[in-house]
Design a protein around this nucleic acid. Structure first.
Length: 104
DNA sequence: CAAGTGACGTAGA
DNA sequence: GTCTACGCCACTT
């Protein structure tokens, strides 16, 4: 099992402080985590969560650029969309309305 | 140490 | 607006 390095922990902490009903993009999380161009690395960290990490992180609040959901395996996209909708996040034609819920 | 992989981002067609 | 190509980072083998 991959040990959560400082980078991963940083990403988790960043995602965890995202308020309910609001979403952040991978690039935004990467920037706050300390890696402006590490959007991909952020996805790696969140992917590790689903693998078995016990850290409860609202990964569903992390979306791609423009509020787009990533087409990851398992069809979790629908789960993420449903969870966000349950928190009051509005969608527009499949994209999260970052203008209303984006971290800005 | 080098190569491969992946829940991304931006730019170009 | 959509798709494709390249670059970015970190982790695994």
């Amino acid at each position: 099992m991959p040990a959560a390095t400082g980078f991963f922990s940083r990403v988790y902490q960043t995602v965890r402080r995202i308020p309910r009903g609001r979403v952040a993009t991978y690039g935004q999380v990467a920037l706050l985590a300390g890696t402006p161009r590490g959007a991909r690395a952020v996805g790696w960290a969140l992917r590790a969560l689903r693998a078995g990490t016990a850290a409860r992180v609202p990964w569903h609040r992390v979306v791609g650029a423009g509020g787009r959901l990533s087409p990851r395996a398992g069809g979790g996209e629908a789960i993420q969309r449903a969870r966000l909708a349950a928190e009051g996040v509005t969608f527009r034609r499949g994209r999260v309305d970052l203008g209303r819920h984006g971290l800005r």
